[in-house]
């Protein structure tokens, strides 16, 4: 085997997953994409291969089948150098308010599944002594808002999970944990929403920031649209009696 490094992207059929795959392939990495929608993931894999000349493989993963996670990791061709979770499902907040199993699906997809999956890799990375874990969370997890609080609460949980994991890994060795909060990203997931242009970024931008933080500059918690850090800091500082009356 060559010394080419490998990245595994969980959520490889998504737009951010695609952009991230392309960025890593351009950096000379071997790329594995894991997704439930294999046809979409294969389409992304084909594209990255055609553009970069790097082979890209596709692996089946259903994030709602957590009992299969251990097997999924065991069946990987090898342990990757970097694992990135871009798993996410915005969901329909209104429906979640009246359909509790749907609300559970949003929370499992955004919090439980990526946390459980990354934790398995964390254990393996720790045993090996090296590895980088990237979790794409969301600014929606910084403070719960009426318009998307199931999604936001799950992302809050995921952000806290990553924080705790980073703490555990830094005490134990060389495994790095990176939290990425993209803010608004123009993707299929948000295609139906009106987004403020000054706070909206492209999947390419998210991908290059992920690559920068994970493989180049060593940052650990990043907001992709820098202004979002300021916006969320202000939102987090608002006193609750005021905050609860806002339509956000």
């Amino acid at each position: 085997m060559s010394d080419q490094k490998t990245v595994l992207i969980l959520g490889g059929s998504s737009d951010i997953g695609y952009a991230t795959a392309l960025r890593y392939a351009e950096g000379g990495w071997r790329v594995w994409l894991a997704a439930r929608d294999l046809a979409s993931a294969q389409r992304n894999a084909d594209d990255v291969t055609a553009r970069s000349g790097q082979p890209v493989t596709v692996h089946a993963l259903d994030v709602l089948q957590s009992e299969k996670f251990v097997d999924f990791v065991a069946q990987m061709p090898a342990l990757p150098d970097t694992v990135i979770s871009v798993i996410g499902e915005l969901g329909d907040q209104k429906r979640a308010e009246t359909d509790s199993s749907y609300a559970a699906m949003i929370m499992r997809t955004n919090f439980e599944a990526p946390s459980q999956l990354l934790d398995i890799f964390a254990g393996r990375f720790q045993a090996r002594g090296t590895g980088t874990i990237v979790g794409v969370s969301s600014v929606a997890g910084d403070r719960g808002r009426g318009s998307n609080y199931f999604y936001g609460a799950a992302k809050a949980g995921f952000s806290q999970y990553l924080s705790g994991l980073r703490n555990r890994m830094s005490l134990a060795g060389k495994v790095r944990v990176v939290t990425v909060k993209p803010g608004f990203v123009r993707t299929r997931m948000t295609a139906h929403l009106k987004l403020p242009a000054s706070l909206t970024v492209t999947p390419d931008r998210v991908a290059s920031d992920i690559y920068g933080a994970a493989e180049e500059n060593g940052r650990e918690v990043i907001y992709v649209a820098k202004r979002f850090w300021l916006v969320m800091t202000i939102i987090c500082l608002l006193p609750e009696p005021l905050f609860k009356r806002l339509k956000l």
């Binding site: 389409r43 992304n44 084909d46 594209d47 055609a50 553009r51």
Partner: peptide, 13 residues
């Protein structure tokens, strides 16, 4: 999306 490229023939899908 690009779907495939064959450097030998120059065929791009």
């Amino acid at each position: 999306r690009l779907r495939s490229f064959d450097a030998a023939t120059g065929l791009l899908r």
